[in-house]
Design a protein around this nucleic acid. Structure first.
Lengths: 260, 260
DNA sequence: AACTATCGTTCCGCAATATGAAACCTATGG
DNA sequence: CCATAGGTTTCATATTGCGGAACGATAGTT
C-alpha cells in the first residue's frame, strides 16, 4: 500500500522548536551542540531556532557559560491557564461518566480548612430521593465520605486538627463521635483506596468517595457517589468502588499534568 | 541610514505559532476566524499552525463548539521549570513553617525586571477567603508587599526606574500613586526590616513581606504572609514580623552557602 | 425548502522561507 | 602556539510553509 495515512506535523519548524523547548524544560540548561546532538539537528538549525525562542522571550543564554535555558515566560503563561481553569473543567466529564454508570448522585467537593465545600453536583438519574446537598454547601469533614477521603491523605496531626476544629454532632445513629473511631475508619479507607459514609451524615444515605490531588500536589478535592441504602448494598459498593478508583486514577493522571 | 539593524525573528512560523499560543493562554478559547482576525493571518495558515499545536499536544479543539484551547502540557512544562528553581527547594520548608505558624497564605516571588513573578503559594489554612494570586502570576512591584520588600534593598536610582516602568493604577483606596509616598513607605520598610502592604493591592488584604538575596548576593526574591484585615491587625503583624524576620535570617544564611 | 452567511476544512501551485554545508570566531588547554 | 571544541554567521538551494480558492457543514432567514 502506498497509502501514507499516518498523521504528520504540518509545520516542521514548529515540531523542532517545541522539541527544543521540551528538552530544555527537562534538562534545565544545555549547550548548542548538546541539543544538536540529542535531536539530530544541524547545529546551525538549532542555533536559528534558539535565536527565535530568545527573540520571543521564551529562552535566554547564560552570559558566562553560553548555555541555553528557558525563561519564566512559559511559567507565566501556564499561570494564566491555571488561573482560569478550575478543577471542575477537567473533572466534569469524568464525573458525568460516573453518574451515567451508576445513575446515582455524584458530588465534587473542595477542601476549605476543616470543612468541605460542594462545588459540583449531578442529581441521581434513578429514584425520587433528593439529597440535601447542593453546590455551595459547606459541611464538616469528619462525617462525610468525601471528608474522610481527604483526611485519609493527610498526616495524623492534621486530622487531629480538623477533628478539634469541628463541632461534633450526632446527626444519625451511626455518626462517628469518637476520635479513635474516626482514625480507625480512615485507616480502613487508606487500605481500600476509597472512603465510605455509611449513614453517618444522613439517615438512609450511603456513599463512596475518593480524593484528588490539585495543582500543588496537595489533596484538595474529593468526589463521591451517593445513594439510598436500599440500592447501595455492600455488593454494589464493591462494584462501584472499581469505577471510583478508576476515575480517581484517570483524573489524577490528567491533573498530574499540572504537577511536575 | 539604510542600516537595518533591528533584530527580527528568524523563524516566521515560530513567531506566528507562539502568538497563537499566547493569545489562547490569554483568552481561554477562540474560534479559528477569531484568531485569524486578531492576528491578521490567513485562516488556512492559522488552521495549519493549530493542527500542528494539536499534533504536538499543546492544544485541543472542543468537539462541540469547535473552538480551540490549550491543553495542560504547557502547565506541565512550567511545573518542570519551577521544580528546578532551587530557591524553591531550599525555601519551601521555611515557608511551610510560616504557614503553620500563621495559618495564613504564604507567597514566594521572584523579581523579573520591574515586576514580580509568583513562584510558590501556600493557601491559607484558616478561613475561606482565597487570594487572587497564583503561581505564574506576574504583578507590578510598586503595589505589593513583596515588591516593596525587594525595592527596599535597591538603590534609589533603580527604584525610580521601576516606578517609571510601571503602569500606576489605583487598585484600591490605599494604592500608592505618588512616587514620593512610595519612597517614604520604602524607607520605613528599611528601618523595620520588613515591608507591608496595607490593602494597597486588594481590598481587605494586608501582608507582611521580606526580601531574600540569591546566589550572586543580589536581591531577587521575596516572601510574604497575607491575610484579611480582620485577622491581620497591627498587633498580629508585629507578632508575625518576628517570624518573618527570623525566616529571612535563616534563609539568607542557607542561601549564602550556595555559590554556583 | 431554498437561500444565504459564516465558519471550519482541504487542496495545491508558487515562492518565500527555513535549511544545512561551510567558513568564521573565540575561548580553553595541552 | 597550535589544536580542539564550542558557538556564530553567511549563503545558495529546494523544501517548506504560504494563502488563494473551492468545499462542506451548520445555523439563521425568507
Amino acid at each position: 500500500m502506498a497509502e501514507d495515512r499516518e498523521a504528520k506535523n504540518p509545520v516542521q519548524s514548529a515540531e523542532r522548536i517545541f522539541k527544543i523547548l521540551e528538552m530544555l524544560a527537562e534538562s534545565g540548561e544545555m549547550g548548542l551542540m548538546e541539543i544538536s546532538a540529542a535531536l539530530s539537528l544541524h547545529k546551525s538549525t538549532v542555533h536559528r531556532l534558539l535565536t527565535s525562542l530568545i527573540y520571543m522571550g521564551y529562552a535566554r543564554q547564560d552570559e558566562a557559560t553560553q548555555k541555553y535555558m528557558l525563561s519564566y515566560k512559559l511559567v507565566s503563561m501556564a499561570g494564566k491557564i491555571l488561573a482560569r481553569t478550575d478543577i471542575l473543567q477537567i473533572a466534569r466529564p469524568y464525573l458525568e461518566r460516573l453518574s451515567d454508570i451508576s445513575g446515582e448522585t455524584v458530588h465534587l467537593v473542595q477542601r476549605e480548612g476543616s470543612n468541605i465545600l460542594y462545588i459540583y453536583k449531578i442529581e441521581a438519574k434513578v429514584g425520587t430521593i433528593r439529597m440535601v446537598s447542593h453546590v455551595g454547601m459547606v459541611h464538616p469533614m469528619y462525617c462525610s465520605g468525601v471528608g474522610k477521603a481527604i483526611m485519609a491523605a493527610l498526616p495524623e496531626k492534621e486530622i487531629r486538627q480538623i477533628w478539634e476544629d469541628s463541632i461534633i454532632e450526632k446527626k444519625t445513629e451511626k455518626t462517628i463521635t469518637e476520635y479513635k473511631e474516626l482514625l480507625a475508619v480512615i485507616d480502613e479507607a487508606k487500605d481500600r483506596g476509597y472512603a465510605l459514609d455509611d449513614e453517618e451524615n444522613e439517615e438512609g444515605v450511603r456513599c463512596i468517595a475518593a480524593s484528588l490531588r490539585g495543582y500543588g500536589n496537595e489533596v484538595r478535592y474529593a468526589f463521591s457517589i451517593s445513594g439510598p441504602v436500599s440500592r447501595m448494598t455492600n455488593e454494589r459498593i464493591r462494584e462501584l468502588s472499581a469505577d471510583v478508583k478508576r476515575v480517581q486514577q484517570e483524573l489524577s493522571g490528567e491533573l498530574g499534568y499540572l504537577r511536575t
